[in-house]
């Protein structure tokens, strides 16, 4: 600092050296960014894209489901919302064909994720959000929903119904687990 007043010795103004320095600065900066950007983006993304594998949970005896109409069946499942461990209430629609044959629908409208309802007087499921209509067997009749209601994996053991809770990609014609 003291000798700032003294005559300066000019740095080399060799053009090739200068362009080397420019490119070098860019490369260093680029790599520094990259080395941080990849992990930082990964922290936001891969956590989100991880598929959670559900397990079969007891949803009560098959005998308590009536045979005529789809019926809401509730069951509780311990679940984790990120770091919050909680008992989550699941609500699914069950349609019984026989003691050993039950179809279980996810309660989530395959259109954009609202909760549809059963309307017994019309024998149809109707979603309040954009008015999608589904038949008793889950087939989409009209409305914006791109596919039929999503069935959930089930199994029946000793007269008890077990359901595996899953979520599917919304708004697309194919049923893809997410």
């Amino acid at each position: 600092m003291e000798n700032s007043e003294e005559p300066k010795i000019p740095e080399q103004h060799d053009p090739s050296r200068r362009s080397f320095l420019k490119i070098g600065t860019g490369v260093i900066g680029g790599f520094a960014t990259l080395i941080l950007a990849v992990p930082f983006l990964d922290a936001l993304l891969s956590q989100s894209l991880r598929i959670k594998i559900g397990k079969f949970v007891n949803a009560g005896p098959v005998s308590s489901i009536s045979g005529n109409n789809p019926q809401k069946v509730f069951f509780d499942e311990r679940d984790r919302d990120a770091y919050i461990e909680e008992v989550e209430r699941r609500d699914v629609w069950a349609l019984k064909h026989g003691e050993n044959n039950v179809t279980v629908f996810s309660p989530i409208c395959p259109h954009l994720g609202c909760r549809y309802n059963w309307h017994p007087e019309r024998d149809e499921f109707i979603c309040p959000c954009h008015g999608s209509v589904f038949a008793k067997d889950g087939k989409v009749l009209h409305g914006p929903a791109p596919r039929s209601l999503d069935t959930l994996p089930t199994k029946i053991e000793n007269g008890e119904l077990y359901v595996k809770w899953e979520r599917f990609k919304l708004g697309v014609p194919k049923k893809i687990v997410v």
């Binding site: 005998s63 308590s64 009536s66 109409n69 017994p120």
Partner: peptide
Amino acid sequence: SIAWLMAQIRNPKSHDP
């Protein structure tokens, strides 16, 4: 039927909205 009665108790709207 038993099933009908069970449904009526658990979910009466399934028979009469």
